[in-house]
């Protein structure tokens, strides 16, 4: 899922201080699971903003709301008219949600309440780790299920660099060396020899270098098009 973390209240305040009517709008999927931007956190941020407004002597109405997802219109359509009544929407969804909602709120700006961090897993309750970078060309079958793109600080494809140090990365002793993990894992899987195959330079056009990406599922699109045509007639 997508992991985010709340911006500081100072940063948020700087964004919102000139608005009179602010909606803190929570998203109850990924960012709720990581305790950053669900309805509950939206409520907390709204309370902090009201208090801050009081401290600064500003008159500001701040409310909160939450829907299941900001990245699918069906979830927020039922409340979109309500949302449009505000001067500003502070979305606590991930960046996807902020973008998506922003296109659909007319004249009302949508600002981010979170920093969207990465795709991650729940290592332990309250601990979230990045395990995938969404590069668009998966090679996990070659690396024992450990991604060197996301987990090697240098995104190396053919073994560790000289900075590997007793299983840790040179950037910090808190960071595991992904290639150390890969080698250990491949040993365990009895597939160490697979690593002697040299990986050619990667084609990054499937990743950020190729511009914004889009995936189209033909059979779903086809069905939708027919429905749209029917509705048109």
């Amino acid at each position: 899922m997508i992991i985010g973390s709340q911006k500081s209240i100072d940063e948020i305040w700087n964004m919102v201080q000139d608005f009179k009517k602010v909606l803190v709008f929570g998203c109850n999927t990924c960012v709720a699971i990581c305790h950053a931007g669900g309805e509950k956190e939206a409520e907390t941020i709204a309370a902090l903003l009201r208090m801050r407004a009081g401290q600064e002597g500003k008159k500001m109405e701040v409310n909160h709301l939450g829907v299941m997802r900001h990245c699918e219109p069906e979830y927020f359509d039922p409340v979109i008219d309500e949302v449009k009544k505000y001067d500003l929407v502070l979305s606590t969804a991930c960046g996807v949600g902020v973008n998506f909602l922003s296109d659909r709120t007319g004249n009302v700006p949508v600002y981010p309440g979170l920093n969207t961090s990465f795709y991650g897993a729940v290592e332990a309750p309250g601990n979230f780790v990045e395990l995938c970078a969404g590069c668009g060309n998966c090679i996990l079958h070659l690396t024992g299920g450990i991604c060197p793109i996301a987990r090697c600080s240098k995104t190396l494809m053919n073994g560790p660099c000289g900075g590997t140090n007793k299983g840790k990365c040179e950037i910090s002793s808190d960071v595991d060396c992904a290639w150390y993990l890969i080698v250990e894992r491949m040993k365990k899987l009895g597939a160490l020899e697979k690593l002697s195959e040299i990986q050619p330079p990667r084609n990054w056009s499937t990743s950020r270098d190729g511009g914004p990406r889009r995936v189209s599922v033909e059979h779903i699109r086809e069905y939708e098009k027919q429905e749209e045509q029917k509705a048109g007639k």
Binding site: N28, E39, G66
Partner: peptide, 8 residues
């Protein structure tokens, strides 16, 4: 109840 991120 107060811990539920979705107020569910």
């Amino acid at each position: 109840a107060p811990e539920c991120p979705g107020e569910a």
